[in-house]
Simulated assay, not measured.
Amino acid sequence: MRRIIIPLIFGLAGAAILISLGTWQVRRLAWKEAVLADIEARISAAPVAIPAVPDPEADRYLPVAVRGTYGEGRIRVLSSRQLYGAGYRIIAPFETGGRLILIDRGFVQERDAIPAAPQGEVTLRGNLHWPSETDKYTPDPNLEADIWFARDVPAMAAHLGTDPVLMVLRGGAGEGAKITPLPIDTSGIPNNHMQYAFTWFSLAFIWLVMTGYFIWRIRNPLKGT
């Protein structure tokens, strides 16, 4: 018995740690699902007017409706879509209620020409967003080639002379067939806690099996050893 006490304690302690990590991931899964449900509810709520001073945190995903006209200029942000390949998100200025904001019109495939923005007054519906797509490795925009590599709201606003407010369209108001709105949803928010929990519980099971085998070998040594 003395020979198996230390391996037994070591095995049970290791399994307990692994199980606790799996249990923590299960709790994180419940938390993340609640967060995603709250975001979905916010995204799909009835649209309101854009606040006078939108807050990038409190008003993220806020559904809004605006009426106005598209302005001059636009930005191409390098992007891609599954099954479609490379292309661009088209960001355009939009005048509404005496202010200029940014509109994410949607996705255009790389080989297609960018459709002109609808003329005249239009009503748009979408969600406010301040995407976190830049880090220290994000290249600066290639203005000569007219390519941006991320939706950097303050930088895009400065370039087009608008307020730092981005509205992502939920549908195309007068948009042509060759531009596809990419409305905000939760599909891009990672939720891998179930896989993590399964990994930790699997490791705990393997740890216990290996501990049991090690103890069995101690109690049943090979002949001649």
Score class of each variant (00 low, 15 high):
Met1Val: 15
Met1Ile: 11
Met1Asp: 10
Arg2Thr: 15
Arg2Gln: 11
Arg3Tyr: 08
Ile4Glu: 03
Ile6Ala: 13
Pro7Leu: 13
Leu8Lys: 09
Ile9Ala: 15
Leu12His: 08
Leu12Tyr: 07
Gly14Phe: 02
Ala16Phe: 09
Ala16Val: 00
Leu18Gln: 06
Ser20Cys: 08
Leu21Met: 13
Leu21Trp: 08
Leu21Glu: 06
Trp24Gly: 02
Gln25Glu: 12
Gln25Leu: 12
Arg28Ser: 05
Leu29Phe: 10
Leu29Arg: 09
Leu29Glu: 08
Trp31Val: 14
Lys32Glu: 00
Leu36Trp: 04
Leu36Gly: 07
Glu40Arg: 11
Ala41Asn: 12
Arg42Glu: 04
Ala46Asn: 14
Ala46Lys: 08
Pro47Val: 03
Val53Gln: 13
Asp55Glu: 00
Ala58Gly: 12
Leu62Phe: 04
Leu62Gln: 09
Ala65Cys: 03
Ala65Tyr: 05
Val66Glu: 02
Arg67Ser: 14
Arg67Trp: 04
Tyr70Pro: 05
Glu72Trp: 03
Ile75Tyr: 05
Leu78Asn: 13
Arg81Phe: 03
Arg81Leu: 06
Arg81Lys: 05
Gly85Asn: 10
Ala86Ser: 10
Gly87Phe: 02
Gly87Leu: 05
Tyr88Trp: 12
Arg89Trp: 04
Ile91Val: 00
Glu95Val: 11
Thr96Trp: 01
Thr96Asp: 04
Gly98Ile: 12
Gly98Gln: 06
Arg99Ser: 14
Arg99Phe: 05
Leu102Arg: 04
Ile103Trp: 01
Arg105Cys: 05
Gln109Glu: 12
Arg111Tyr: 09
Asp112Ala: 02
Asp112Met: 02
Ile114Arg: 07
Ala116Gln: 12
Ala117Thr: 10
Pro118Lys: 13
Gln119Cys: 10
Gln119Lys: 13
Thr123Asp: 09
Leu124Gln: 01
Arg125Asn: 12
Asn127Ser: 13
Leu128Thr: 06
Pro131Trp: 00
Ser132Gly: 15
Glu133Tyr: 07
Thr134Tyr: 10
Asp135Trp: 03
Tyr137Asp: 14
Glu144Ala: 15
Ala145Gln: 13
Pro154Thr: 00
Pro154Phe: 05
Ala157Gly: 00
Ala158Leu: 09
His159Arg: 12
Leu160Lys: 01
Gly161Leu: 01
Thr162Ala: 01
Pro164Trp: 05
Pro164Val: 15
Met167Asp: 00
Arg170Ser: 10
Gly171Asp: 14
Ala177Asp: 13
Ile179Thr: 03
Thr180Tyr: 06
Thr180Val: 14
Pro181Ala: 02
Ile184Leu: 06
Thr186Met: 12
Ser187Met: 10
Ile189Leu: 11
Asn191Ala: 15
Asn191Pro: 04
His193Val: 14
His193Leu: 15
Met194Cys: 09
Tyr196Ser: 09
Tyr196Asp: 01
Ser202Asp: 11
Leu203His: 08
Ala204Leu: 08
Phe205Trp: 08
Phe205Glu: 11
Ile206Phe: 14
Ile206Trp: 02
Ile206Tyr: 02
Trp207Phe: 10
Leu208Cys: 14
Leu208Ser: 11
Met210Cys: 15
Gly212Asn: 07
Gly212Phe: 08
Arg219Val: 12
Arg219Asn: 06
Asn220Cys: 04
Gly224Leu: 00
